[in-house]
């Protein structure tokens, strides 16, 4: 905060003082070594600025061509670029082709050649520990990561263009036949048996006993699993209770009061979580929301004593993932925390 006054409120760059030239907070990406004094990037892919001023291009991330069509940028480059067309990611080899390798210092070149061993031309900007490739690129007004087009068809993903698939635990089992999840498959070292689980949930008629769609998400006060932010006394005071947000109609049907305790019951293994009810119309009828920043209670039981001494956050609460269910993203294996079913009862 010490130099806050130096920053222009429109351009977000500091006019003078120790932060002179920087964008507020040195926003990512802030290129190169500290000596380069890159100002940070206020807006990504801004071709109206020189790369040294936080300008940029779209990264060449998916190769240079596909099915005979160039994937590189067409008619677009950042201000002051010496290459006035699309270009691939930079390697030592690309620098050599352009004759720009002579701008490397002896030390930078030695580092690159050491990293590359028998094939130094393949050393790319991202593994060049000397930072020389990035530095030389900035000098020539280009982005080390290339200049390409965005893509709308992600050909290496299971659904190159997103299609509708019913959740594994769905409130509309009648739609599963038409919109099933992806077939079971081995991903990384694990079996992802989403389809088996989806079919089983439909066959068992689970949606009858668990008629509320449950989703999870963030609160502004906390971050991630919340262990750190719930340990911050200013933030902890603002959100002292884990809760489930439910619609007034669902609350009334269950005799649930705003601020009262409820059990949220999950459809797997008799899972349950004891939390407070937040009754609002922000969630539709038949939908419930729980934040994912809490832990430290398990199925109604306080676990504070199990934390290493002094490591227990100020505020504890049930973890929403006690009641969320099976499901893994086929590309990242990220678990399904965003849609499942639940039942809610006054506690």
């Amino acid at each position: 905060m010490a130099n806050q006054g130096a920053f222009d409120i429109v351009t977000l760059r500091a006019a003078d003082g120790p932060a002179k030239g920087d964008y507020y907070g040195l926003p990512w990406p802030c290129w190169g070594t500290p000596e380069i004094k890159h100002p940070g990037t206020h807006t990504l892919y801004n071709t109206n600025l020189h790369v040294k001023d936080g300008g940029g291009t779209f990264r060449a991330r998916f190769g240079v061509d596909r099915e005979g069509e160039s994937l590189l940028a067409y008619n677009s480059w950042s201000k002051g670029s010496e290459i006035t067309s699309g270009y691939p990611e930079f390697t030592y080899g690309v620098l050599k082709q352009l004759g720009w390798d002579k701008d490397l210092t002896g030390k930078e070149r030695a580092t690159i050649e050491k990293i590359g061993g028998a094939a130094p031309d393949g050393v790319g900007w991202a593994v060049d520990l000397s930072g020389g490739i990035i530095r030389v690129c900035l000098e020539h007004g280009v982005m080390a990561y290339g200049n390409a087009k965005a893509r709308a068809i992600a050909w290496n993903l299971p659904d190159p263009v997103p299609v509708h698939r019913e959740p594994i635990y769905t409130i509309r089992p009648d739609l599963v036949a038409k919109y099933p999840t992806l077939p079971d498959a081995r991903q990384f070292r694990m079996l992802n048996a989403g389809l088996t689980h989806q079919k089983s949930a439909v066959d068992r008629g689970l949606a009858k006993d668990f008629p509320i769609v449950l989703t999870s998400g963030r609160l502004v006060e906390y971050e991630g699993g919340g262990e750190e932010t719930r340990s911050n006394r200013w933030l902890a005071e603002l959100q002292q209770d884990m809760f489930v947000e439910i619609n007034p109609a669902d609350a009334a049907a269950r005799g649930v009061q705003d601020g009262g305790w409820v059990w949220v019951l999950g459809p797997e293994d008799g899972s349950k979580a004891r939390v407070k009810a937040l009754v609002t119309e922000r969630v539709g009828k038949g939908v419930a929301f729980m934040p994912f920043h809490f832990a430290g209670y398990f199925q109604g039981v306080d676990q504070r004593g199990n934390y290493p001494k002094g490591a227990d956050p100020i505020v504890l609460g049930e973890s929403v993932n006690t009641v969320t269910t099976y499901g893994y993203d086929p590309v990242t294996n990220m678990h399904e925390g965003k849609v499942t079913l639940c039942q809610i009862r006054a506690a």
Binding site: V220, E221, W234, L235, L238
Partner: peptide
């Protein structure tokens, strides 16, 4: 937007 940044800044 009820972000409570003002409240947190004050407390801190």
């Amino acid at each position: 937007i009820e972000c409570n940044a003002c409240v947190t800044a004050c407390k801190n």
